[in-house]
Amino acid sequence: MTVFLVVGGLGLVVLLASLVFGDVFESIGVGEGGFSGIAAGVGSVVFGASGVIVLNSHLATVWAYVIGVGFAIVAGAVAQLLIKRLSDTEDAPPPPLDGAYGMTTATTGPGGGEVRLEGVRDLEARLAWSHEDIPAGTRVVVVGVSGSRVQVVRAS
């Protein structure tokens, strides 16, 4: 029974570490969709738990290992499949804003302003600034980005 408790406990540590600090195996170059610390942790916990349950049911030790390994493989595979599906649904990074055209929606100058950019999916309007005052309704182009704010100049 000690083997099952130790493996299950180590699996729980790996699982919690992967959930709190990010995937453990990815940080050492094994992860990136190939093998997940979360799936390994789930498999180890299931192995330990099912082994203890089988032993407490007074079955032979060999059955505890067979059932534990079988359940661990199934649980790890299901966890890895779910993790892969979730990672495939992640949003793509936002498009680069340098060179994007738009229109000022408020007077924009060194103190700030606002623009509506064309062809940008994530936000319709952005806070903006420019070195010169640009009146509302003027066509502009993005020449710099600082966080969510953009620096603009009049479009030629």
Rank of each mutant, 00 (worst) to 15 (best):
G9W: 12
L10I: 15
L10M: 04
G11L: 13
G11Q: 07
V13E: 01
V14Q: 02
L15N: 05
L15P: 00
L16R: 05
L16F: 08
L16E: 06
A17V: 02
A17H: 02
S18K: 03
S18A: 09
G22C: 12
G22K: 13
D23K: 06
D23V: 06
D23H: 06
F25I: 15
F25C: 05
E26P: 04
I28S: 10
I28E: 08
G29R: 12
G29L: 04
G29I: 00
V30D: 06
G31I: 14
E32K: 13
G33F: 00
F35P: 07
S36N: 06
S36D: 02
S36L: 06
G37T: 05
G37S: 04
A39T: 07
A40N: 13
A40P: 08
G41P: 06
G41R: 05
G43S: 02
S44Y: 02
S44N: 04
V45E: 01
V46L: 07
F47K: 04
G48E: 08
S50R: 12
S50Q: 04
S50H: 03
V52Y: 15
I53N: 11
I53H: 13
L55C: 10
S57G: 11
S57W: 09
L59T: 09
A60T: 10
V62L: 14
V62P: 06
V62Q: 08
W63N: 01
A64G: 06
A64D: 02
Y65I: 09
Y65E: 07
V66S: 01
V66H: 09
V66Q: 15
V66M: 08
V66G: 05
G68E: 12
G68T: 14
V69L: 00
G70Q: 04
G70E: 11
G70S: 15
F71Q: 10
V74C: 14
A75F: 14
G76A: 15
G76E: 01
V78F: 00
V78A: 04
Q80L: 07
L81W: 15
L82H: 03
L82N: 05
K84G: 05
K84E: 09
R85L: 01
R85N: 08
R85D: 10
R85F: 04
L86Y: 02
L86I: 13
L86H: 14
D88T: 04
D88S: 15
T89I: 04
E90Y: 02
A92D: 12
A92W: 02
A92N: 12
P93S: 15
P93N: 14
P93Y: 12
P93R: 14
P94T: 10
P94R: 03
P96Y: 03
P96V: 07
L97R: 07
D98Q: 13
D98K: 11
D98R: 10
G99M: 13
Y101W: 12
Y101E: 14
G102W: 00
G102P: 01
G102L: 01
M103L: 14
T105D: 10
T105G: 09
A106V: 13
T107R: 09
T107N: 11
T108K: 05
G111P: 01
G113T: 01
G113R: 00
G113Y: 03
